[in-house]
Each structure stands twice: as C-alpha cells, then as structure tokens.
Nucleic acid binder design. Structure first.
Length: 502
RNA sequence: CGGGGCAUGGCGCAGUUUGGUAGCGCGCUUCGUUCGGGUCGAAGAGGUCGUCGGUUCAAAUCCGGCUGCCCCGACCA
C-alpha cells in the first residue's frame, strides 16, 4: 500500500478525548476514529491489524476442529424471551421494533442464536460433540464507555460454542479452549493471566477470565504468590480474620426476575467492621438481578457474613458475602493476597444446560431418551485485544507492533535520491509475499521518520542517496532501534530471514 | 442513573470573569527555499462560536431548555 493513497492522516497532538496511551496512539497513528461514544470506525491500518488477529484466531479454532459460521447481528426478541435474558438483562440489551411491530434485539451475545441453531440441527448423540465459532459484531449499551476500544459499546468478538452430550465432554472442550486461548494470546504478543471468574450475565457453572494486567484495567484481581491462587475480586475467597465483634449493616433492595415477573426484597447484610461487601456474592446468594442501596425499610432477609463474630441480631442465613482485599489471607495457603488491576480480554464459560433447558435444546441419547445439550461458550474481545496490544506495545515515539499482528510487516521510505530504487524494491518485496507500506509521499525526511515511528511497523527500510552511497538500504528494527545497511541484492533474503526469526 | 467538566475553522487551544461582532499554534492550498528526524519565508483558503429560546441597541461572552462528548462513581467483555 502506498501512503500517498492512504486515507490515514497522522496527528501530531494528542486528541483531547484520550485518557490512555494506547487509545491516543491508535488515534494519532490513524488506526481508528471515534464515531460516537463507544462506537468506532477502523481505518485501513486498524482493519489490517484486526484481520491479523482474526487470522490467528481462525487458525487456532480450526485446529480445535471448530467450524466457522456466522450468526446475525439482529435477533428476534422471542429467542431472548425463551432464554429469559430478555427479562433479566436491563438497558444493556439493544431493543428495537421493526416496521411490522416485531420486537428485535441487537446481538449482545449469541448463546440464544447458537442454541436455536442446535435445536434445529442436532437430533442425536451421534452428532455430538460440536464446535462452532464466529467472529461478529456485538452491541452492548454500556452505561459508560471509556478508554477508547478498551470499553466500547459496539465491538467485535470471537465467540466459540461447544455442544456436548455430557459434562465430561464439556470439560474436555473447555480445557481445549483454555489452552487454545493461551496460544492465541502468546501469538498476538499479549501477556495474560487466567483467573477464576463470575459467570455474570452468561449464566452457567464455571468461568475463567483471561486478564491483561495493567493499571488502566477496571477489574481487580487477587493473586496469591504462595500457592498461585488467582481470582477476580467478584469471586475471590479469603480467610476471615478474627474480629473484635464490631459489625456494620447495609440495606439493599434486591431485584429478582422470576420468569417475566419482577420482585423486590429488602435485604440487610451484616459484615465485620473492617470488611467490604462483595455485591457479586450477594447477588448470587439471593439469585437476584441487581441490588440498589436503601435504608430504613423493614428487612425481609438478614444475611450475615461468615466472618462475623458476636452478632446478636436476627440471622436468616450465614454465608461469605465479603470482598477480598489486599493483604487478606489466601484460603488455601494463608499467604497474603495482593491486588492488581486488569482488563478482561477473554472469558470462557461452562454454560451447562442453562440455555438448552430454557430453550428446549435436546438430543436423543444412546438409550433413546431426550437430554438437554451441554453447552460451553468462549469469547475473545477482538477489538479490545487490539487496544490492549497498543497499550502493551509502544514507546515514547509511537506504536511498536509485533510482527504477527502488525498491519504491514515493513515500512518502506523513499527519501531524496531513493524513489526510483524504492519503487522497484516495493514491487520485489510484494512479489516475495511481504506486506509493505510504502511512504512515497512528498514529505521531508523528518516527517516520514516520525510517522514511521508512530505507526510502528516492525522493519523500516530507508532508501536515499545517502543509503545508496553507503551500500544499499538502511534497515531499522522498530523494536530495538538497531540499524544496518544492507546491499540491495541481499535485501530480500535479509528481510525474509529476519521476519522468519520473529 | 448520581457527581463533575467540556463544546470556538480538520486537530490542539485562547477569548467568556468585565457584552461591542473572533484569534493563536499545528494542519491544508500556492510560490520560493530546504532535503536523514515534524526546515524557513511569503501569500491564501477555511468558523451560522453544539443547538433552540430569552435578556439587550448589541451575545462566543449573560440567563434558561435541549443535545453531544469526556472524567469519577454505580455497572460492565
């Protein structure tokens, strides 16, 4: 691609809307443009990088025996009503009505659609197991998009869905995805940590989240250096310390959804004085949809944390409802837990029969008996991954893409006296199958160098009178700044060999 | 949804306190100059000051409604 034809203006100053470095650089280098809050266009370089990410994901999913499919962005409300999520999920679900008055939803996720597909296609245990995946746009009307692509409302996900006859089959596919996801992140160049997680709005029985550790993350993790325990704060357990008997009480209205009905119960939570409430634990205990604080109402249910001693008031239930904090003791080994911030880039769920039971997705087993299909769902936030990669791979001058995901592999710069040679080199490189971004613009050297640093392609090739006088092409590695002059007739080999090493 | 902030040319900002009809830097166009780290000079183009209404002889500036965007919290892949 010639830069003279690229609709890709780089900007020198940081746009005022950016708060995190990765977002700033993606905007300045011309990878993305914001269209509305949490909604983005991907310019050519951004789209290329996304395609690289998606190619890696396809390879790894195909290697698991996955079949790529594509499910729609718009779903009939009936599917979501059947699973119950139409009623359970509030304003995050994009709802619309078509010209004939039919209710539709925008794809917040695709469990319902896949379950419906399975209901139509799967009859017998002989057709199981199955693995289908797709890469598709999602809409979640997040109450507060932030940090660019890290938390947007419209985003792209890789979703994989497994269908099995039993829990053992699910466990195998779950483990296969667990391993495959690590391979995907390793190939993309993003360090991640898998942690125990809440199942959240997906439902199901078990979940792990793949976390990119960064101070700009909005999840808090608890890690144990003693035994390796690691969990999202939402589910993290810890040894309750001895307390002096001081307690605190907090009152909530718990909103429950039973079928299409909404119910409310007033709950008072009692905690040790120094504890913090873990609302996720409380929500699960109550089987509630959400909580909102209240005060001075007649309590329907008294919940006391299992770390409380000396509570003499009413008790309806004792359970773990406290949030683990930095320095709390690990449940299994007693070492102090530490907290870190992280961005969730992927998650995997054992859905079990949560969707197949509610939506009537069954198969006939070997004994001729209808059974609910056992499902798993596995997702990677593709656009969020791009944002994390920009966050992870940059320096003061700009982005520094790993070869595997760089929108182009080399950045060819033609300076004074080098244009003619550069043009023929551009053709040679492309014929050799190398992705080249060619800066053929009439700009001063400084502009080209700075843009090249900002865009951050792995190799920079400079052709000029000076380089030719020195013996050929200047080759500069973006990552470590190492430069060398390579003779023209050796360049193709040099570049190919270097790329192959990465 | 609660709290805070912002909205002036493509981008970043000043001007608003104290009302008098819009300015700076970058970018863009043309010419010259320079040519390996965002050269230098000259001449240009480009703005219903988010929007609707009010006050006033006069509103970017004062008042009110609305919209959009950002940040903190709640929430969330």
């Amino acid at each position: 691609m010639k830069m003279s034809r690229l609709m890709n203006e780089t900007v020198r100053e940081a746009p005022s809307v950016t708060e995190v470095k990765g977002h700033e650089l993606l905007l300045r280098a011309g990878f993305v443009r914001q269209v509305a809050a949490g909604v983005f266009s991907y310019l050519h370089l951004g789209q290329r990088a996304l395609q690289k990410l998606e190619a890696i994901m396809r390879q790894e999913m195909d290697a698991l025996g996955g079949q790529e499919i594509k499910m729609p962005l718009v779903h009939p409300a009936a599917l979501w009503q059947a699973s119950g999520r139409w009623y359970e999920i509030d304003a995050e679900l994009g709802r619309l009505v078509d010209r004939n008055g039919r209710s539709l939803t925008l794809a917040l996720s695709h469990e319902e659609t896949l379950a419906e597909l399975a209901r139509q296609e799967i009859r017998s245990y002989r057709q199981l197991p199955q693995l289908a995946y797709h890469i598709q746009t999602k809409w979640r009307d997040d109450p507060r998009p932030r940090a660019g692509l890290i938390r947007s409302r419209e985003f792209t996900m890789l979703d994989s869905y497994s269908l099995d006859a039993d829990d053992a089959g699910l466990a195998a596919q779950y483990q296969a995805h667990y391993d495959a996801y690590f391979r995907i992140f390793a190939r993309c160049g993003l360090p991640v940590l898998a942690v125990e997680a809440d199942v959240g709005m997906m439902g199901g029985t078990q979940a792990d989240e793949f976390m990119y550790l960064t101070p700009i993350g909005e999840d808090t993790l608890l890690l144990c250096d003693g035994c390796g325990y690691r969990a999202n704060r939402q589910v993290a357990t810890f040894r309750k310390p001895e307390t002096g008997g001081d307690t605190q009480a907090m009152q909530f209205v718990a909103e429950l959804v039973v079928g299409e009905e909404k119910l409310e119960r007033v709950v008072t939570a009692v905690l040790a004085h120094h504890s913090q409430l873990n609302e996720t634990k409380l929500v699960h205990l109550l089987d509630a949809q959400r909580l909102r604080p209240t005060a001075d109402q007649a309590t329907d249910l008294w919940l006391v944390d299992d770390g409380v001693t000396g509570w003499s008031g009413q008790v309806d239930k004792v359970a773990d409802i406290a949030a683990a904090q930095d320095g709390d003791a690990c449940t299994s080994c007693g070492q102090p837990l530490r907290t870190v911030r992280a961005v969730e880039v992927a998650n995997i769920f054992k859905l079990g029969t949560r969707y197949s039971r509610t939506m009537g997705v069954t198969f006939v087993d070997a004994h001729g008996v209808a059974q609910p299909i056992v499902m798993g769902s596995y997702g990677i936030g593709v656009t969020r991954l791009l944002a994390c990669l920009a966050e992870q791979h940059h320096d003061a001058a700009g982005l520094v893409w790993p070869v595997a995901i760089a929108p182009y592999q080399v950045h060819l710069l033609a300076l004074r006296g080098g244009l003619e040679t550069a043009v023929s080199l551009y053709n040679d490189l492309q014929q050799a199958g190398i992705d080249v971004l060619f800066d053929d613009r009439e700009e001063r050297p400084g502009v080209k160098f700075n843009d090249a640093d900002l865009i951050g392609l792995p190799l920079r090739l400079t052709l000029s009178q000076r380089s030719l006088a020195a013996g050929g092409v200047e080759v500069k590695i973006r990552g470590d700044g190492e430069t060398a002059v390579v003779p023209l007739n050796d360049l193709l080999n040099h570049v190919t060999a270097w790329l192959a090493e990465q």
